[in-house]
Structures are given as structure tokens and as C-alpha cells.
Amino acid sequence: MTVADVLLLALGAVAVGSGALVVTSSHLVRSGLYLVVSLGAIAGLYLVLGAELVAWVQILVYVGAVVVLLLFAVMLTRAPIGPSPDLDRPALPAALIGGGIGIGLAVLFADAFRWVRHPYPEPATAERVGEQIFGAWVLPFEVISILLLSALVGAIVLSRPDIGARAATEGD
């Protein structure tokens, strides 16, 4: 086992463990904080694999923005300190679906790549990523940017009552 292997196993264990805590903890806000740990550990995995850019994007987008928005929303509605025993979560079906997908994917990957040894790819420098995105993958990139733009416009329309309300009354 190389250092990279050990790091991958350790970070993977942290990611899976804190991920399990996210869904099993009965402290609402704490499970959001466990999500920070889990996503941070995944960023660490990317870093070990040499995908530096993806790792920092993971931190910037998921830890710095998505989880923060989630925590923000929870704190604006109901965020008691301590456990919330009244949460109704069907634990058994969720465990079945989650565990099933996890084991299924693991079996699938283990079967597909069993005896193939992959060399580590070259480190993903910003230059290489840029060349790939704006060279070979420019069409998907543009399609995704249109999708994001329309989501942005939609969010503005929904959140501004002056535009949204007028459209609704005119439609009636």
C-alpha cells in the first residue's frame, strides 16, 4: 500500500462515516455540519487523485455555498439545539435503497475494473482542464451554461412578486 492508498482509504472512511451520520443524526443542524465534513473529505479524495481544480471547486461550491444555504434555510425555519425526536423518517426503506445502491455500484465497479491496472493520469492543471473544456467539450459546456442561465432567470421571476403576480393575474 502506498501513501496515496492509505490516504484514499482514510478519507473514504471519513466521507462514508460522516455521510451516515448526516442521515442518522437526530440533531437537525448537526447533520448539516456532518455534511460539511463529508463533502470536505470528498474534496480531499480529489486532491489525492491529483484533481486539484475539482477539489477546490468542490470546497467553493458545496462547502462554501450549497451547505451554507441549506444551514441558512434550516436556521430560518426550525433549528432547535439538541435532538428532535419527533422527526418521522422511514428508516428501513431508506436504508434498503441507500445500501442497495451503494453495494450494487460497488459490485458493478469491482466487476468492471477487477484486473485492470490504471496508471494515475497526469495532474489536472488549470491549463489542461481549460484546453479540454473549451476544446473537446465545448458543446456540453455551453448547454450546461444555458441550463444554469435559465435556472437563474427562473429564480428571479419566482422570487420577484411584481413580475410573478402580474403574470398570474394576466393568465387568469
Binding site: V36, W56, I59, L60, V63, G64, A65, V68
Partner: peptide, 10 residues
């Protein structure tokens, strides 16, 4: 730098 500064919100 930009990614890590974002952690301050947490």
C-alpha cells in the same frame, strides 16, 4: 484562496 475563504461562513 477563494475556496478556503468561503469556509468562514460555516
Amino acid at each position: 484562496v477563494l475556496a478556503v475563504l468561503g469556509i468562514g461562513v460555516v
